[in-house]
Amino acid sequence: MEQKLPLPPFTLETALQKVQLAEDAWNSQDPVRVSLGYTVDSEWRNRSTFVNGRAEIVKFLTGKWERELNYKLKKELWAFTDNRIAVRFEYEYQNVDGQWFRAYGNENWDFNEHGLMQRRFASINDVAINETDRRLR
């Protein structure tokens, strides 16, 4: 059976590890690598977009990183329970016209017993920033 360590139930240490692993995967900007942390039938709500399954995750992230250039993300553990983790995050990116943005948000994650995320719900807001105001590099 496919597994993604660490496995639930989470402790503070393993929840922090899971958050760091997710941050590292997303910062790779490799849609396939990111998708492997999710179940094959994973459910997402990302802003107002609904994504289901790894194939749709790869398609969604491929388009995202074609539009969001110079992407850099920071995730922070907010709370956790047995098989759930909540994070706050911010990321910065530049659009194809050269405008920089900082996005803020929260995610709720639900994992199966094999450590794969089966549900991800993300609420995200973007703010235009000047390049000199960037915090993530």
Rank of each mutant, 00 (worst) to 15 (best):
D126M: 09
E107W: 00
I124R: 01
N27S: 05
A128F: 02
P6V: 08
N83T: 02
S123Q: 08
N108Y: 05
S123T: 12
R84Q: 02
I124L: 11
L61Q: 07
D82V: 06
N106G: 09
G37F: 04
S48F: 10
P8M: 07
L77S: 13
L61H: 01
N95H: 08
L77Y: 14
K64A: 04
K64R: 00
K74D: 07
N70I: 03
N108F: 12
Q118R: 13
D82G: 13
Y93Q: 15
F60H: 10
Y104P: 00
Q3T: 15
K59D: 06
M117D: 09
L69S: 06
V87R: 03
L116V: 10
T14S: 11
L7A: 11
R84Y: 04
E107P: 06
N95V: 01
G37R: 06
A25S: 07
Q17G: 14
D133I: 14
P31D: 01
R45F: 07
N125S: 10
V87C: 13
E23K: 06
E90L: 01
R102E: 03
F50D: 07
R54H: 00
R134F: 10
K18T: 00
G63S: 03
K64D: 00
T11S: 11
W26Y: 12
G115I: 04
R134W: 09
V32M: 06
G98P: 01
G53H: 05
V51L: 05
S123V: 02
K59V: 08
E90P: 01
S28N: 05
R33W: 10
R33I: 00
R45K: 14
R102T: 07
F50I: 11
L77D: 11
T14P: 03
N95F: 02
E13A: 12
L7S: 08
M117N: 06
A86R: 15
K72L: 04
N46D: 12
R134C: 08
L7K: 09
S48M: 10
E2L: 15
A55S: 10
D110Q: 14
E107V: 05
K4F: 04
R134L: 08
K18Q: 05
R102S: 03
W44Y: 09
L69W: 06
Y38W: 03
F80Y: 15
K59N: 14
R84G: 11
F10K: 02
A122E: 13
Y104H: 08
I85L: 12
S35V: 08
A128I: 08
W109E: 09
D41Q: 12
D126G: 14
K74A: 09
P9T: 13
L21M: 14
P31L: 09
E131S: 15
E56P: 10
T39I: 08
H114G: 03
